[in-house]
């Protein structure tokens, strides 16, 4: 847990752009909220490898949102069930699932569909909110390490290097 918190601080204090951090967290959120072993999760992981996002925050996001997913499990089922059994969408789904790849991807599963829709919808505000948070943090709080004596003393500790990103 402490390690995860330190990773966030390290990322916040690093030279990486805010979008890299926010995208890492958003990807972690999407992967964490969905059932792990689905083909589209592997695709997202592939994207995470090639997009220059922060991988540490992806892992933090993954672990954090996996816990949230357990709580939201019934909600995901309800969303998925409502969407997949909606009468107006039956024609669309029947043509959509003609392609066996989507069945292989288990998109006909209420939990997979529900969590996919929820996580995609939630990832957009999550990205922008975290982006804003990173900017505000760097503008107002990053300098505190040099101003407050207690925090300043942290500079002596090895941990400072870790959280400030100086140890890289």
């Amino acid at each position: 847990m402490i390690r995860q918190v330190l990773k966030i601080f390290k990322a916040l204090n690093s030279d990486e752009k805010p979008w890299q951090l926010s995208l890492g967290l958003a990807f972690g959120g999407i992967i964490g909220l969905m059932p792990l072993w689905t083909p589209h999760n592997i695709f997202l992981l592939f994207l995470a490898f090639i997009i220059n996002l922060n991988f540490a925050l992806l892992l933090v996001g993954f672990f954090f949102f996996s816990g949230i997913a357990y709580i939201l499990d019934p909600l995901f089922h309800e969303i998925g069930l409502a969407v997949l059994t909606s009468e107006g969408m039956q024609e669309f789904w029947n043509s959509f699932f003609i392609n066996p790849i989507f069945l292989f991807d288990r998109l006909n599963n209420t939990l997979v569909m529900g969590s996919l829709l929820f996580s995609l919808a939630a990832s957009v505000p999550l990205f922008f909110l975290f982006n804003l948070f990173v900017r505000k943090y760097r503008l107002h709080l990053q300098g505190l390490f040099d101003k407050i004596p207690i925090l300043k003393s942290l500079k002596l500790a090895k941990i400072y290097d870790t959280v400030s990103g100086g140890g890289r």
Binding site: P74, L81, F97, P100, L103, R106, N108, N109, L111, G114
Partner: peptide, 16 residues
């Protein structure tokens, strides 16, 4: 029926 962690597989008999 909802099963925690598993959900339910909706059938699309026309599609497959």
């Amino acid at each position: 029926k909802y099963v925690r962690g598993k959900g339910a597989n909706v059938q699309f008999a026309k599609a497959m």
